[in-house]
Amino acid sequence: GGYEIPTRLRTLHNLVIQYAAQGRYEVAVPLCKQALEDLERTSGHRHPDVATMLNILALVYRDQNKYKEAAHLLNDALSIRESTLGRDHPAVAATLNNLAVLYGKRGKYKEAEPLCQRALEIREKVLGARHPDVAKQLNNLALLCQNQGNYDAVERYYRRALAIYEEQLGPDDVNVARTKNNLASCYLKQGKFTEAEVLYKEILTRAHVQEFGPVNGDHKPIWVHAEEREERSRSRLGDSMPYVEYGGWYRACRGSSPTVTTTLRNLGALYRRQGKMEAADTLEECVLRSW
């Protein structure tokens, strides 16, 4: 973007992050404030380096849950960046996004939404409508809408994010499963259980294909095993069937993403709701054994 963060600032940033990670805020904060004073003396207040330093200090305040103080700094940084880098610079989008996150943490979803929306518009303009960073922004926007109960918007944003991830990163990217999971919770909140179930099964089938190859008679996704077990128990053929290894799913689970584990839990809860206790038990057993 025509502006590089100076090495000295980068080093200081790394140092501050280390102190903050250790909870040593009493060291991190004065370090930031001193650097801020030095920068202001040499470059003046309205300089991109000052904005960067304000962002670093805001991060430390965020980690201490001092959201108001952090937002105050980011507003200052935003105004500096807009005037020095231009209104449509990616750094402006990032600052807007983080301001929205801070508002979100304080439950101020309505105030956060327009900031997130503007960050999205900047990213679309600068990166193009199909860039993964656009999808990332859509995810945050969806979550803000979800917290306000605006489910139509949530579905729209998640669907768009999903299409971008599938097209740009491929169907096996972790972001695809994550976004499907989020979309499914939006469906659940509206009582759209069938739609949620379809997505959960897609995630688990995808995880299966990734781990074991194509689905066939010997290699079936865990939810197929679960439903077959349910069927058997209903026809009283397999009342006391032990939990078998289900094609190695327990072991596969151990290595897979937290999203798959969450999906197993959520589909399990959905089965339980439908009274499919054996199917639910099968998925929950899989989660437990994978630990």
Binding site: R62, H89, A91, A93, A94, N97, V101, N266
Partner: peptide
């Protein structure tokens, strides 16, 4: 289980704000 459902949903901070 509502908690499980929501476990992964967190607003994401953009760290790139430090790298411009």
């Amino acid at each position: 289980d509502q908690q499980n459902v929501n476990r992964q949903q967190q607003l994401e901070w953009d760290d790139s704000t430090l790298s411009y």
